[in-house]
Nucleic acid binder design. Structure first.
Lengths: 224, 224
DNA sequence: CGACAGCTTATTGTATACAAATACCATTCG
DNA sequence: CGAATGGTATTTGTATACAATAAGCTGTCG
């Protein structure tokens, strides 16, 4: 896309993900414009996109705030994600190409290397994990589905999830990917969907366990 | 929302739904600005929203086109819609209030009246049908879900679906709503989800039957 | 005859100035 | 003392001018 608008988008998104903008905090277009070194026009553009992706909320009088999700909201996001990714896996099983299968295998190999190293390489795990899921989605071949999953996968709190993985969960994740590959090999959509459902739900419970002490049950504004 | 930006949104949306802008047609911001009687700024805003709702597509060099969906795309939209509305019904069964139940009943009564009149009142049916589904969604209490369904329900071609209903389908639709109400009365989420799944899938087949002769299997541009 | 380079035109992206709307605060009146 | 009202400041919305980019065309060269 356009340069300034994209820079603003990335910049603001990073500010949110890094926590420099805290959940519930109000956002002013001009302040962001200065931070990003662009005018308000591309900032407004970026805010619209981030709003569509639920990173940002707007109250009734158009003021913007960093979205702030409760644990309940988050569990629901995981449920939707499980449902949508399972659907994607079902479609992918019927459509995936040899090339895509090979790429999946390669990423899952990289994941294995990342977690069997003397000190687990979490960033590497996260990167290949992300690409693995992206390829499944690509094989599913549905733009609509891709758009919907974007709304549900990349939420700030969700993104932090994998960093909470303990060794046990990292290994399970790898093995679930393996099982998904076998389901794909057999073009068994139902199997693939079932594996994917479990995969995402396990990730949720890993998150919930890691965050059981958190007190993030407050929201900024209400919706009808 | 803002006045000019909203007017532009409604205006352009209507142009698409009415067919004055045909699927695949290129859209120029300035032309639309003149049509809407506003400047390009709010038009761009509206285009962004319509793009998020998949009414509009953009090619790699940022030119906008009216979205043009194949029958396959459409069936997939129906599948996603069935899945998401079933999920919504499952949630709604656990959360729906007496007031919401009463409103559902009232709308389904209006639907019965609309289709049992000497000449069926299709616009009335469509209006109350839309509100019925909106209340179920409201009872489900998930903004994320609402946003996703908006992407899938209001597609141009989908919107035209109900107009294709024959008398048989109109009656079935009414009875399915009735069954959904009983499932809600019993707080039976699984039943509600099952009824909703069938409800949407029947709607798809009604559409497919009515459009079996159409030759709309062409797309404007490709995506990766 | 085909293709490619360079120019021209069309279209979108960005900045800025100004208008409109909203929130915030102080003051006054009950 | 509290609530309502008014004015001021802050923030967002819109228009417009200009910059950047991409498309289309034409003329030339292989």
């Amino acid at each position: 896309m356009s340069r300034a608008s994209d820079r603003a988008y990335d910049h603001i998104r990073n500010l949110i993900l890094s926590g420099e903008l805290s959940p519930g905090e109000q956002i002013r277009e001009e302040a962001l414009a200065e931070l990003c070194g662009v005018s308000r026009t591309p900032v407004r553009d970026a805010l619209r996109r981030l709003e569509a992706e639920l990173f940002i909320r707007r109250n009734e009088s158009q003021r913007s705030f960093v979205a702030d999700w409760s644990l309940d909201d988050l569990e629901e996001a995981f449920q939707l994600r499980a449902m949508l990714e399972a659907y994607g896996a079902r479609r992918a099983a019927k459509r995936i190409s040899w090339d895509q299968l090979a790429r999946l295998r390669s990423h899952n190999d990289a994941i294995r290397q990342a977690i069997t190293a003397s000190t687990p390489d979490i960033p590497k795990f996260l990167d290949h994990n992300r690409q693995f899921h992206a390829i499944v989605l690509e094989a599913a071949g549905s733009e609509r589905l891709s758009g919907m999953l974007a709304q549900v996968i990349e939420q700030p709190v969700v993104l932090r999830t994998a960093r909470q993985y303990d060794m046990e969960n990292l290994k399970r994740s790898h093995h679930e990917h393996d099982e998904l590959l076998i389901a794909f090999d057999n073009r068994d959509g139902e199997w693939a969907a079932a594996v994917m459902t479990g995969h995402i739900r396990r990730a949720f419970h890993a998150y919930a366990a890691a965050h059981s002490g958190d007190t993030e049950i407050h929201r900024t504004d209400e919706a009808a």
